[in-house]
Structure formats: C-alpha cells, structure tokens
Design a binder for these strands. Sequence first.
DNA 1: TGCTGTCCGTCGGCTGGCCGACGTTTTGGC
DNA 2: GCCAAAACGTCGGCCAGCCGACGGACAGCA
Lengths: 218, 218
Amino acid sequence: MHAHAHLARPDLAATAHEALLAGFTLRELPKGYLLSTPESPHNQVLMVHSGRLRVYLAGDNRELNLSFLEAGDIYTTHTPTYVEAVVPSSIWLIDTPTFARKLATDPSVTPAMMRVMGRLLSNAVGLIEDLAFREVPARLARFLWQLAERRGHRLEHGWLVPLDFSMQDIASLLGTTRQSVSSLINQWEREGVLQRQSRRSLLVPSLDSLKARSSPVP
Amino acid sequence: MHAHAHLARPDLAATAHEALLAGFTLRELPKGYLLSTPESPHNQVLMVHSGRLRVYLAGDNRELNLSFLEAGDIYTTHTPTYVEAVVPSSIWLIDTPTFARKLATDPSVTPAMMRVMGRLLSNAVGLIEDLAFREVPARLARFLWQLAERRGHRLEHGWLVPLDFSMQDIASLLGTTRQSVSSLINQWEREGVLQRQSRRSLLVPSLDSLKARSSPVP
DNA sequence: TGCTGTCCGTCGGCTGGCCGACGTTTTGGC
DNA sequence: GCCAAAACGTCGGCCAGCCGACGGACAGCA
C-alpha cells in the first residue's frame, strides 16, 4: 500500500498490453533528458519499457521526488510535475487527445486507466499524510520496510534489501534532507536495527523493529 | 488553479448531467454523518446536491482537510480519506462497480470522469507542494487571495471576501494550527493588508499585498 | 439575563530538523 | 591505476512553528 517508490505498477500491462500499446510510439531518452515540466503544454500518457524515470516537483532550491518509474510503470502528465530520465531509457508515448479518442472508441481500456489514476491519487494522498502527520524517522522506517517487503529477499539472518537509491534520492522521496537520512541510518545501524552490506544493499534482521519506528511518535 | 478549497467543480454536471445521474440514488445525510472512512470497504462516486461535505485525513490528534465539497462538486472515495457532512446535506451516490459498468457501456461519460480524477490529482499535488515548499504565511496568503478571486465581490475600497470557514477549518486546510492562522491574520490586519468586517467576512484593499506574501520566503 | 459551548487572541517555552561546512570514502571514466 | 566527481558522515547553530495555557468574545437557548 501507498509508498512513493512506485506510483503505478504493471496492471495495464497485464490486462491490455497489445490492445493498449497500439497507437503508442517507442521513444529513446538519453540520461538526464527532461521529458516534461509543469509548464510544458502537452499532456501525455507513457509506459516505461526500460530504464528509470524520476517524477518530481521543484521548489525554491529544493526538490521533492514523487516517484521513480521503472519497466512496466505507467504515468500520465495530467499533473504539473517534472519527469526526467535518470538513466538512458525507452518508453512508449502517446499524447492525451489521441489517447482520449482511443478510450472513446475502445472502452475496454477505461477500467485499467482508472486504476492507474486511482493509484496515482492514493500515492499522492499517502505522501500528504506523511508530510502532515509523520516525522522524518517514521517516514524513513516505513519507506525501508516497504522496500524490504517489495524488493527484499528472505535470508536466514533477516531480509536482504537492495537499495538502488542514493541517500539524496531517498531524502527527496521523503521530503527531508540528505543529512537527516544519513544520520538516521547510521544511528539505526549502531542500534542494530540494520546493517549495511555493500553500498547498495542493507541487511535487516527483523522488520518489526522498523515497523515499530514507523508510527507517529511513540 | 490548485487550492484545496475545491477539489472538483461542476464539469460533469455541465457535460452529462442527466445521462450521468441515471443509476445514482439520492441520499440525505444528517449533520456530522461520516459517509466514508479509510477503512470502509466500499468505494463510491458521489455528487453533492446540497449542503457541505468535508474531505479530510486524520492523524494522531490532528486532522488535515483536503477539501470542502459543495453543491455540484464530485468526489470519488478511490482514495483513503474521511468524508463527513458538516451540515445536513443531500448527495447523489453510486458504488464504484456499478459506475464502472456504466462507464463500460456508455463511454461518453469517461472523459468527464477522467477530468474529475485529473483535478483531484492536481489538487493533491498542489497540497504536496504547499506542505513541502511553502511556509505557513505563504500558504495562508495564497488561500486568501484565491478565495477572494473565486468568491469575493469587488467594491470601491477593495474586495469583500465571505469567509465561511472557522480559523480551525482554515488551519486544517493548510496543514497548520489555529493559533498560527489567528496570529497571522491579526498581524496582517495591523499592517493594513486586510480588515475584518463581520466575523464572517474580510475586506481586502488590494490583492497584490496578499500575492506578495504568497511566494516562498522573499 | 444568566449559562454553556464554541470560537478567537496572545504569550512563551520547546524542538525537529534544515542548513552550511568540511572532511572522508566510493565510484567511474580514461 | 589515477584523478576528478559524486556520494556519504557528522557536527552545531538556528528558527519556524507546534503546543499548552488561559482569558475574552460571541452566540444560542431556556
């Protein structure tokens, strides 16, 4: 549930892959390419074929990541955000008017699309809850155990969690700063809540200790 | 644009009123009635016929209003929020599965529905931007001048703005506290940015002074 | 014309966490 | 391998704004 790590998962791909993709054009994006900004006039619908896109808001010398999109994820720029390729990526693209015509003629696509938008909404609401109600440690703890549940592998000694985000990435995802994330993780390591394996993965002995830290001020 | 005061305006009503409402049932809600909570299993689509509903999130001894819905507004409980009637209200109701069948058979409703969800999303994103990037005075200033533009009446000496929210309502809408809102408004009154007419309305000599205060840290 | 409940104004203490700064470690390109 | 660039760790100052508290103002309502 919730969590900013992924606004939209397979769904559409599963339900209506071929039918849906007719009309889309495949497009290659170089690393760092800015696909869309709040000012760009064109609304479009996209599905990631490969690579990684970052969806974010930008404020005064500060950025907030709404989501990272990966293969199979779907997004629509109905909403005023930036979308940027963080690695070379390829995506299926279509502009909204064309897509709307498609919806009108082929109503079978509608429910899938509604699900996607519903998911986007839920995640936005989840982020609002985080920002309004939870403090930074709680947000981070929740982020980590959700990551563990979704991406982690069960070992004898706990969960091995791949962590392919920089601390800056995580901070922006949670609406906090690099420093705060860094301090917290190191503190938790000292407390035995987690261990760093490599730079790019964590070992979490028990998810419970994380869950305990993910509720509003205990 | 944006602003939490109204997540969804007429739209649907204008485009497909009768066609749309077929299948909906009219329902009377007493004051204080809790129509839906994050835990309630049933998703539904509603349109306000009369009265006033409050859409909000609840955290530990704290609430955040996402929106107040009034006549003509549309909402869908796709997303885990509380919906409560703050005055006796009557609404058109339908559950999502039924509505989905409707969409499937009558694709003409789809674009309107997409617009509604798009609007919900935009507003959610707007609130996220507020919480993440703007400080309390900026949020309040923006709220007030948007209210003035939407609801205010032009007079010789400025704008007369009806204010049918308590300070607590406004605070919850902006993600801050009653005290902060109260202090700011009184401070601005001393500075001549606004004057209180009655308890339920403001006089704003010039919207510019508000707009000036609504940008991130000047 | 009192009584009770809701709303508003203001004050001061307290603190989460932002920010700048600076040194260290890791990574990746060539 | 080497070196620049990126990423990480840690510390302390600082402040927006939350929180509790308390008193006044303005309803209804009998």
